[in-house]
């Protein structure tokens, strides 16, 4: 302890105290905040009646008591179980607040509850259903076809690496890192938020599997050549080369040119060239 007291006026003491405090705060936050909730959509027998009562509790304020829609939110008649499963299993619904867009957040409903609500909405007016396991099975899918389709139809918003991007008026195309194959399929079928619908007539079920295979393979494959820098392209590369490249080399330059005592005096421009 006495050694700490002895060094408390050291020039680096202030920085050390701040760094220590930051590390402590970070560690405490990490310990207390806990990990993300995990929820997978269940395919067990669903109860539309239970779904209706859950809907009235948590959804009807905006969507109307019979899911007919209000000025706040659209009608869900004909939206289908796939839309409900996508919106609720990604945590987008129930909405946190009105805004440009509902974004992914921790899921508060159990898979069974989501399935119940989905079944009730499905019973109202049909619509796209939740894909079964074979529809989202990516084994043997053609990733090259997936690349061509993804490049042509998805990358302009979601980015070539699937890391997401900005849209207009505060809307965004989300990163695809956390999306399950089922959610990707549902998104194509239902076109949530600003996304267009890619129905089976536009993108066939096999092509959907190819796209899902491409997305899941791209996001899990290793990054040859080092850290990916967030797969956001040249912007982060530019930041790295300025701060990491030039910043580091300037430090080395300062070291290389540290003042020497034995400087030599040479002739100036006038003395040698003689033409002035």
């Amino acid at each position: 302890m006495s050694s700490i007291i002895a060094r408390r006026r050291h020039p680096a003491a202030g920085y050390a105290a701040i760094a220590g405090g930051l590390v402590l705060a970070g560690a405490l936050y990490g310990a207390l905040a806990g990990g993300p909730a995990s929820a997978a959509p269940g395919q067990s027998s669903a109860s539309p009646a239970n779904g209706r009562s859950l809907f009235i509790q948590s959804c009807a304020t905006c969507h109307g008591i019979n899911a007919q829609g209000t000025s706040q939110a659209p009608s869900l008649i004909g939206a289908g179980a796939a839309a409900v499963d996508f919106q609720m299993s990604t945590g987008r619904m129930p909405a946190k607040e009105p805004g440009a867009e509902n974004t992914r957040k921790p899921v508060t409903f159990s898979p069974q509850q989501i399935a119940d609500i989905a079944a009730w909405i499905q019973s109202l007016g049909g619509g796209p259903t939740i894909p079964d396991a074979t529809q989202v099975n990516t084994s043997g899918a053609d990733t090259a076809l997936g690349e061509e389709l993804f490049s042509a139809s998805c990358a302009q918003c979601h980015n070539a690496g699937g890391s997401g991007g900005a849209l207009t008026y505060g809307k965004t195309a989300p990163s695809l890192v956390a999306s399950t194959p089922t959610q990707i399929y549902e998104a194509m079928m239902t076109g949530p938020e600003a996304m267009p619908v890619f129905g089976d007539g536009t993108v066939t079920p096999d092509e959907k599997r190819a796209i899902i295979a491409y997305i899941t393979q791209t996001r899990t494959e290793a990054n040859p050549g080092g850290f990916s820098l967030g797969r956001t392209g040249t912007v982060t590369e530019g930041i790295v080369v300025w701060l990491g490249g030039l910043g580091f080399l300037v430090l080395i330059a300062m070291w290389l040119t540290a003042r020497r005592k034995d400087a030599v005096v040479g002739p100036g421009h006038h003395a040698e060239s003689g033409d002035h």
Partner: peptide, 16 residues
Amino acid sequence: GPYTPLAISSASQPDW
């Protein structure tokens, strides 16, 4: 991916 004039990726930026 290979270039096709039909496609574009978001966050297409030039070098700095």
